[in-house]
């Protein structure tokens, strides 16, 4: 059984296979989507009353932050350290932890499903996915990597169980690929970069900084323990870490 809602301006899909013909109750899905709405209210930098906005404007001291905010602040510091300062939640004096919050929230939602007894499930927020346990056929979840040159198709199928996957990409139009940092057409770098990690938080928080590193990104990921990656070049050739082969069909 599957339900999709649009929250934080992205489609979020929760998929839970039926067990012995019994469908998971609606209340389970209600709880997960309710959680994502709470996350949006607290962490959106675009809502003036969100806790992120309060901190950004200096109206709430970090020492007074809520427990989930303190957790996110801790993860921001950790990721800034691990990416050599490449990730930062502060830009021009403004606080914006969105690069951490998405993957973290998807992982929390997945843990919520675990605690409710639904061991097998997928949570997909805008293409960043936590795949837990098994799918309806009793096998690993089959996750396609979207074709950056033709988004109606995929280029690869990965079979994932108890893993997270996240993809960063470019804007492609005609022969132009745009750099997400500058908005200008680029001649180097990858068309898309997919990261598989022990969970979606690890995959998501590394995919964006690694993508922005251009050609260095796949090297950075290959040297990161527990992380595998599939990078698609602008020439239609892919480079991937050898460890990814274990997820290929």
């Amino acid at each position: 059984m599957e339900r999709t809602e649009v929250i934080m301006d992205m489609p979020i899909t929760v998929s839970i296979p039926s067990m012995l013909g019994v469908e998971p109750p609606d209340e389970v899905f209600d709880a997960v989507f309710g959680y994502f709405r709470e996350i949006d209210e607290r962490f959106s930098p675009f809502k003036g009353g969100s806790e992120v906005s309060l901190i950004s404007r200096g109206e709430e001291a970090i020492e007074d932050a809520s427990p989930p905010m303190r957790e996110v602040l801790r993860l921001c510091e950790e990721t800034a350290r691990q990416t050599g300062g490449y990730f930062s939640a502060w830009y021009g004096g403004k606080f914006d932890p969105s690069g951490i919050v998405k993957g973290w929230a998807v992982r929390e939602a997945s843990r919520m499903l675990d605690e409710l007894g639904f061991r097998d499930h997928c949570v997909d927020a805008g293409g960043d996915i936590e795949a837990r346990g098994l799918n309806a056929e009793g096998g690993p979840w089959e996750i396609g990597i979207r074709n950056p040159f033709d988004p109606s198709t995929i280029v690869k199928v990965l079979r994932l169980s108890d893993r997270g996957i996240a993809t960063s990409g470019t804007y492609i139009r005609g022969d132009h690929i745009y750099d997400p940092k500058t908005g200008k057409p680029v001649t180097g770098g990858f068309a898309s970069l997919t990261v598989v990690g022990p969970d979606v938080y690890e995959a998501d928080r590394l995919s964006t900084p690694a993508f922005a590193m251009g050609e260095d990104g796949i090297g950075f990921l290959a040297m990161t323990p527990g992380i595998e990656a599939y990078a698609i070049g602008r020439d239609g050739n892919a480079l991937f870490t050898p460890g990814l082969a274990r997820y290929m069909t």
């Binding site: 301006d9 992205m10 899909t13 998929s15 997928c122 997909d124 805008g126 293409g127 960043d128 996915i129 795949a131 799918n135 979840w141 089959e142 996750i143 396609g144 990597i145 979207r146 074709n147 950056p148 040159f149 033709d150 988004p151 198709t153 995929i154 280029v155 690869k156 199928v157 996957i165 996240a166 993809t167 960063s168 990409g169 470019t170 898309s192 997919t194 796949i218 090297g219 290959a222 040297m223 698609i232 239609g236 050739n237 892919a238 480079l239 991937f240 870490t241 050898p242 990814l244 082969a245």
Partner: peptide, 23 residues
């Protein structure tokens, strides 16, 4: 580090979900 190279080819296999930068 050592990496594997392959040419990507579009396919339309049925999958459970798709990972991509669509947002």
């Amino acid at each position: 580090p050592y990496l594997v190279q392959e040419a990507v080819s579009a396919q339309s296999a049925r999958v459970d979900l798709i990972s991509g930068a669509t947002l």
